[in-house]
Each structure stands twice: as C-alpha cells, then as structure tokens.
C-alpha cells in the first residue's frame, strides 16, 4: 500500500486556493492569555486569548479602533499591558531591561510608516541590529544584509538613504532589516496602509514569499488578497475583543457573527 506523502506532511498546499493548512501542533510560539489594556478610560484589549503556532500566518482584521494594532504591539511590548500574560517560545515576556531587548531581537516588527533609521544608509539600516545586538562582524553582517536586500529586490539601493527610496522600497528594506535578526516571529502593523496603490503589491509579494518560507507571521492588514493567498487564520477583532476566528476562505465567505458580517459588507462591497 502506498502512502501519499502529501497527507503525511503537516503543511498541505492546495494549489487551487493557494492556502496552506497548518494544523496546530506542539507548543505554540506566541501565547497570549487574558491580556487587558486600557488607554485612559478606553478598554482597548479585553481578555485577549490568542495562540499562534510555529509557521502559522495569522491576520488581524477589524474596524479602526478595534485594538488590532495595539494587540500586535503588545507582543513585543512596544505597548505595555495591565494584566494577563504573553509568552514567546515558552518564555514569558520580560518587563524591561536587557532581557526585553533580547526578546525583541527575536521578534521582527514592520511598521506602517517604515521607520527606517533616517540618518543611516539602507545597508547600515539592515546591519545595525546584527552588529550591535548579535555581535556579528561588519563583514559578516554586510554579506548577509546584501543577500537579504537582494531577496526583497532593493540591492541596488544599498548605499542610498531612506528618504531617497519610494515607500514600497523602504518597506521592503524594513522587512529585510527585521529578517537580518533571524526572528522567530514577525509582526506586521498595517505594512501597506501608508503606500501608494501601485507599491502595495511589491510589498505583499515579499510577504507572501516570506509566509511560504515558513515564517511565523502576525499581520494587521485589510488586504484580503494577501489573507486569501498566505494566511492560515483570520482573527476578527472589534471593541478590543477577539470576536471570531476562522481560516480565510471560511471567514470571508461565511462569517458567523453579525459584527463580522457587518464589517465585511462594508469593505467588500466596493
């Protein structure tokens, strides 16, 4: 009796839908439990429970002000939270100091406004972390940075400054800068929202490639195309709560809750 190798692997790519199904296996990489946060009187995160498995790509979606960006930013403690716990790769998130810095080195972050270091060249942007945090030699860091810049398609811009690049190019450099740290998980906080329409795809292509390579990703985005192509799970948030989660196809075609239906009707009718 022959065994179909596809059915044995834990990642199956449906060539028609281009969706990977990764069953949650073993210890999850990111675990948030009962996380609460307020901005003054506003309860922005309410009892958030979320587990993200190794290699999983999770999309956070929801109306503005629903807390999705805040959730994303609490994972590397760019935002503090009041109660609950977050652990990454089995280790609880340190409150501050060197341990927190070390943890952040393992968690890549891509921002809406790119945030490339304005006074450093593209190459220096990518090598700063490896040299200062990972203690790599300059030659070693340079070599790896050039490989990464090539991977995201901006190798020709290595000696320029961020302001000389287009938004799409800057965001791809920002992805390379995160990748240079060899992170365990990458957070994307609305990575395409500040881009001109014609530049969105060049960034999404890099992200899709990254997802295919097995990177664990948590992405705040409204790009349905990306969600369908690369995500394992869509997490829908509203008013600081996780309201619904499902694989993208299921979520977009048959949302269960009224709030998700209402939200989707507003963004999909155009």
């Amino acid at each position: 009796m022959s065994i179909d190798p596809e059915s044995m692997s834990d990642s199956v790519i449906d060539p028609h839908l281009m969706v990977r199904y990764v069953p949650a296996m073993g210890e999850p990489l990111v675990v948030m439990s009962k996380v609460n946060k307020h901005f003054g009187d506003l309860h922005v995160l309410r009892d958030i429970d979320l587990e993200v498995g190794r290699g999983e790509v999770v999309i956070l979606i929801g109306p503005s002000g629903s807390g999705k960006s805040t959730l994303c930013r609490t994972i590397n403690r760019l935002e503090t939270f009041e109660s609950g716990s977050i652990s990454i790769d089995g280790k609880p998130l340190p409150e501050e100091g060197k341990e927190l810095a070390q943890l952040r080195a393992d968690v890549g972050m891509v921002f809406q406004s790119f945030n490339l270091f304005a006074h450093k060249t593209i190459l220096e942007n990518v090598t700063l972390g490896p040299i200062k945090v990972r203690r790599q030699s300059k030659a070693e860091a340079d070599k790896r940075a050039r490989e990464l810049l090539e991977r995201v398609g901006v190798q020709a811009q290595a000696s320029k400054y961020p302001a000389q690049l287009s938004g799409g190019q800057q965001q791809r450099v920002a992805i390379a800068r995160s990748l240079a740290m060899s992170p365990k998980v990458m957070l994307f906080d609305e990575p395409t929202s500040a881009l001109d329409p014609e530049m969105i795809n060049e960034v999404l292509d890099v992200m899709v490639e990254l997802a295919r390579s097995g990177m664990t990703m948590i992405v705040v985005t409204h790009e349905m195309g990306f969600a369908r192509k690369a995500a394992n799970r869509v997490v829908f948030m509203s008013d600081g709560q996780i309201v619904e989660q499902a694989p993208p196809q299921e979520f977009f075609t048959t949302p269960k809750t009224d709030r998700a239906k209402d939200f989707l009707s507003k963004i999909l009718t155009h």
Partner: peptide, 29 residues
C-alpha cells in the same frame, strides 16, 4: 519621530544603544 525609537527597540537595541546609535545622532543634527 517616535517611530525611530520604536524601530530601534524592536530590533533589540537597549535603551543606551538606541540613544547612541539612533536618537542622539539625529538629535544633534
């Protein structure tokens, strides 16, 4: 911009390193 400090912290630089490598060079300018 605050984003510069956030980016510095997000790649794992400590407070001192963020100041030296990212914030102060731009602040001096």
């Amino acid at each position: 911009p605050t984003g510069q400090a956030e980016a510095a912290r997000s790649i794992g630089l400590t407070f001192g390193q963020s100041l030296r490598e990212v914030i102060l060079p731009q602040a001096f300018r």
